[in-house]
Design a protein around this nucleic acid. Structure first.
Lengths: 199, 199
DNA sequence: CTGCTAATGTAAGCAGTGCTTACTTCGTGG
DNA sequence: CCACGAAGTAAGCACTGCTTACATTAGCAG
């Protein structure tokens, strides 16, 4: 179940993808991962991964990109693009849920110093921000969408991290959902008519 | 310069405090720290730290507590306890500034899985939350202070982390300050973003 | 002052890590 | 068909966290 991509022989076939996959499995299981353990699990020598990733950070960056894409596709999945403040709240609920369901991956995506050199990674983050801005444009046509996107993202991000760290009173998932919804409703309810002054 | 607490002889005198101090120095300098490097810098053998900290995580917890206290005292320093929405915004500015000025420490405080077993640590975080709730009670007497505290903290926390990770367009410190202020102003919907008297 | 004990330090060592270097294998394009 | 380069191996370096057995000494009871 771990790596059926291409079994035998001297050459693995698709080691890069397998490594990412195995790393995700380990991370999901809560185990700390190491390049060597990865290699072992992939049935390959400890030096092999370096043919595909410059160093550990590069592998982590790949995982982060994977996570960002997954998050993005979860947030945009299913329903139409949000068109009301309430639906923006649901976006936040999804964000926080993702963080709590996959804490290690989420921490990899955000909790580390980001490698700005990794184009793919900054782009993946940019896509998210742009999507949020688009949503905000649709929902709050008279406000600065970029500023609102920043605000909304920050709020959801903060909620996610504080919950992750247990800094907020713990509760079951539905209570957390409700708290996120309520927080968003409270802060985005007021939108005063004129807020284009937001830089 | 590193450790003048008590130098010579077999026994160090105050190794625990020295280790925390040295660790903070290293962290501040951007170097990754290791228990062994710490011990070396403190002029002590590599096993010595384990007389004072069960493991690396315990040391990190001590650093986190230190950071939380410092942050707390910075936020409450100087002026009176905030009494207006604008002053609540300044609290957030201070929070984000702290994160950007001491990124590694901030990440230690929040970016890792928190050891809930460490009483001192959860208490330090609790103090912060309680303080915020008190402030909110004073400023918005007709709202749920705990909810507002959560919201405000989350927003500031998210802004801090997204800036740390370079997920938001970079800017100089004053631009960031202004963005934080504006975000708070917008979401907490207080009268006018530009009132004189903001420090 | 003497002598015991517990706290604090040391030395050595284990298992594991990231990463490099030199060598081997083998699919593939000229 | 065969050489070449991509992708694997093996071995090893410097380092890490942590443990265990031993050394030193501060501080206290008598």
């Amino acid at each position: 179940m771990v790596s059926d991509s291409a079994r035998p022989g001297y050459h693995h076939g698709d080691l890069r993808a397998t490594l990412v996959l195995v790393a995700l499995e380990m991370i999901e299981a809560g185990e700390p991962f190491s390049l060597r353990a990865l290699a072992r699990r992939a049935g390959v020598s400890s030096g092999a991964p370096y043919r595909h990733f410059a160093d550990r950070e590069a592998l982590e960056s790949a995982l982060a990109v994977h996570g960002l894409r997954e998050l993005m596709s979860e947030l945009t999945a299913g329903e139409q693009v949000p068109a009301s403040a309430a639906e923006v709240g649901e976006l936040a609920v999804g964000y926080v849920r993702f963080a709590l369901r996959r804490p290690a991956l989420f921490r990899l995506m955000f909790g580390r110093a980001c490698d700005d050199q990794d184009d793919e990674r900054v782009r993946a983050a940019g896509v998210l921000h742009d999507y949020l801005a688009a949503v905000m444009t649709a929902v709050f046509p008279h406000a600065d969408p970029v500023a609102l996107a920043t605000a909304g993202w920050s709020l959801a991000h903060g909620l996610a991290f504080l919950h992750l760290d247990g800094k907020l009173p713990n509760a079951d998932q539905v209570a957390i959902d409700e708290r996120v919804r309520a927080t968003f409703a409270a802060l985005f309810a007021f939108p005063s008519p004129n807020q284009e002054g937001i830089p």
